[in-house]
Design a binder for these strands. Structure first.
Lengths: 365, 365
DNA sequence: ATGAAAGCGCTAACAC
DNA sequence: GTGTTAGCGCTTTCAT
């Protein structure tokens, strides 16, 4: 039995300082003259309760300002209505858009989202996995990141869904990703069809599954046209901001004397950086060099020349991932089978890849 | 007494399915032959414990794969080593940079961060305040957002720090912000000194304290030069992406026949949008119109022409805010006094505001 | 339809 | 230096 029930049944706003204890179901129970189990039933809407008591309890809840203590609830239930999202860089435009969409959908479903920024640091990622585990999250979504996977730190079997990541070492897993191969293929086709013959490929590490797939699609399209541009691969420094690193990498390639008339960059920022390098050397886009980016982020339509880009269906990805995760968490599907969902991509054509004649406002020459 | 202690002292990896219960301090205690309080003491490093037991307990922890249950700990301690960060739009470049920095600093200090995306929705923000409260977070950082403040939903007095937000209705509060007035002043000065006489001001709602302050600084600089540009204020639609909305707003202003030779936009994306509108109408930057943005985000240096911008000290802001919050949470300072920290800003000069003669690569005319 | 009581995993006061 | 025990707020049998 609790010894600390308030004698007068009031919350007693403790004049002076305001470290009043928050009201629990005990206060609600006392105030409405029922037992705590009844209060619990009212709150969670289960069991049969007479309309009268339900009403009284609800009033009492309002009056004392009751709010459920999720720590106690999680402890009792071994679950928390919370999911963790692990992401390598929360300040990256594309990633934060995905995270934002995920959070929105999960919120709709009544889940809170723990967003964890691994800062591309494996040990930090591992710490976060462990923290999420300790916090009893019901599920985890991993967005992008390395293929190595610290699955062994998990002590329970939590629901797990990956986006743009293929965890190695797991026999089965659930994942959602865009059709990166097709994206690379579309980009190369666009450039080749516009007449480009010397197409540079700019990416961060091709060890990431997404970049590798884009590269393979790109290469496939070129092979079909008997082209080979393997001497124009630029792998940029990942410790610099995308645009800056890309500008440096592209600059180096150009200064080394390579002939380039097309560029496919694996994101829009890298495309922008490449364009800066081109412009700084007196080359014009799209007249001298055509460029295609990836993601169709806000910058693609905002910049001048506007940027042709491969659009990924962010909303779709987030929707599929949350649906999958929720099904997993609610045991609607078995967690052993594994599944990979691949979403289509789409080329959005803009100025940067247009043929000269159709480019508007071209008042040069 | 617990009845469910494992009889053999092993975690028994339950062949077949893996819904083994996670080990608690009871399992650790049994395995190392001590009591649970000793285990607790070892874990939390308090009380005097012999080296031998400490060692044995630590081994047992490893062996059974113990991980502390934070729900139980929070319940017991009424705190969670967790803070909430509420932000209007996690996919906004500047905001996500701030959030990223906050998260990094808090992680260093051993705090987990709950990132809450209010999506500029007041009721969602309120829900999040309540959720954070229920989750026993030790502190909350609010980044940007409206001046109205749902403080009444909080049932405990949690530590609270605002960034770029001035909550009305609170007698005292702690806040950190850039010197927005100075930022506006610097921008206007830069443009006016370069010879601009008709300077447009582009912002989202001037109801936000940050925008209002920037505007006032801007206006002050103009007044000192006997200039008045109140006919060139553009307040853009906040339901569209920044760049797009700004492009539309700027386009409308230009098409209405107003003469414009300078633009101050309250962020870099809006500056970019404005430039697009200018370029699309055959105006050149900086030759015909000079432009200054705000934030010095990645895009400012990456775009062409590169963008002059007012740099805010993101790291500094995040550092001050976390220091303040931690002091508040650990009662190192009283939560009644209130404090506002203002950090300096800095103008970063680039091509978009340079005088024509000094602009490189100007091969027009 | 409602109440009593056990127990989730943990910390801390109190014993020895 | 270590063990015993109460209780944080909640859900959930098991009674009635």
């Amino acid at each position: 039995m609790r010894k600390d029930l308030l004698s007068d049944g009031l919350t007693m706003p403790s004049q002076g300082d305001n470290n009043r204890k928050r009201p629990s179901i005990y206060e609600v129970a006392e105030r409405s003259g029922v037992s705590i189990s009844t209060v619990s039933r009212v709150i969670n809407n289960n069991g049969r309760i007479s309309g009268a008591t339900r009403k009284r309890v609800k009033e009492a809840i309002k009056e004392v300002g009751y709010i459920t203590n999720t720590a106690a609830k999680s402890l009792r239930m071994s679950k928390s209505k919370t999911v963790g999202v692990i992401v390598p860089d929360i300040s990256d435009g594309w990633l934060s858009a995905v995270v934002s969409a995920l959070e929105g959908f999960l919120f709709e479903k009544g889940y809170s989202t723990f967003i964890c920024n691994s800062a591309r640091d494996e040990s930090k990622e591992e710490t976060y996995f462990s923290t999420l585990d300790a916090k009893y999250v019901d599920g985890i979504i991993c967005v992008a990141g390395l293929s190595s996977f610290p699955i062994d730190v998990l002590t329970r079997d939590v629901a797990l869904v990956c986006i743009d990541r293929r965890p190695e070492g797991l026999k089965t897993y659930y994942s959602v990703e865009s059709d990166h191969f097709e994206g690379g293929y579309l980009a190369a086709t666009e450039l080749a069809d516009a007449g480009c013959r010397h197409i540079a490929f700019i990416s961060r590490s091709r060890k990431l599954s997404t970049n590798l797939l884009r590269y393979e699609g790109f290469r496939q399209a070129l092979l079909e046209r008997d082209m080979n541009c393997d001497n124009l691969l630029v792998e940029i420094d990942d410790r610099m901001p995308s645009a800056e690193a890309s500008q440096a990498g592209m600059g180096k390639l150009l200064d080394s004397g390579c002939q380039v008339d097309g560029v496919f960059a694996t994101n829009d920022w890298r495309a922008l950086g490449a364009i800066s390098a081109l412009v700084d050397r007196g080359l014009r886009v799209p007249q001298d060099v055509r460029v295609v980016g990836f993601d169709d982020s806000a910058i693609a339509s905002a910049m001048r020349p506007s940027l042709t880009s491969i659009r990924q269906d962010i909303e779709g990805i987030a929707r599929e991932a949350t649906d999958l995760l929720i099904a997993l968490m609610e045991r609607a599907i078995l967690s052993g089978s594994g599944k990979r969902i691949v979403l289509p991509v789409k080329l959005i054509r803009r100025e940067s890849s247009m043929s000269v004649t159709s480019a508007p406002r071209a008042n040069d020459i």
